[in-house]
Amino acid sequence: MTVEVKSLTFSYGQGNVLEDVSFTARPGRLLALLGPNGVGKSTLFRCILGLADHYSGDIFVEGENIRSLTSRALAQRIAYVPQYHYPSFNFSVYDMVLMGTVAWTGGFSAPKRRHLDLVDQALQKLDIDHLRHRGYTHISGGERQLVLIARALVQEAKTLVMDEPTANLDYGNQLKMMAQVKELTREGYTVIVSTHNPDHALWFADDILALSAGKVLAFGPPAQVLTSQLISALYGAEVHIASVNQGKTCICVPELDKNIQEGEEKYEQM
């Protein structure tokens, strides 16, 4: 499903957290959201997910304004994958994933056969079927993140919004996670992922949305917009974008001398 954000402006009272943000996320394309801490990424997500509604501008999902959708209808279109967490009660992995069907079962009814099948498929697809009877709080962070993705798949929404799915994962799991996310994109999901790692954006994203102080700094394919200038503007870090592996892969290489020097200068000024 195409998600279209049009001149979105949001404020918590003083100053705009988001200012005139416009972009489009399309099916089959992975949109990576880049930006330093506190730049409004979470607020943008909250607006798209219908958790914050006193914004100006419009958000459309497949042509429908999300203001006109109930939380249930919105959940059938957009699924949220939060960072893995520690819930108050330890549910089994199976039960956790099954909860994703509540947007369809609704009201007072129990999940039907069809929903249970969906859970089985999702568990197999993400290769966590062997964990189904384990407690959600007893498994590793990477496994937990996969459980939350499985839950979003069961929700049968064609748009996935993921909040830093690689946060707190080790190097190997980060790559596996991003590959998994990319795989879902290939299947036709519209995926919006926030990340703190520009390399992930370079390697996996089809589009990049760079936010700085609530404004869109750049939007477009990584090859075009993800430059050393952009990284510098976003994070104040000097990097060099190198091409390795016979030009097949680009990678951010920090210019350590410069960064360290700058850091020292700042330190001296203090």
Binding site: L49, L51, S71, A75, M99, R151
Partner: peptide, 15 residues
Amino acid sequence: NVLTLGDDEAKTMGV
């Protein structure tokens, strides 16, 4: 069940 995960998460799941 879904409510035990917190308001925001429950809402994004359609509750």
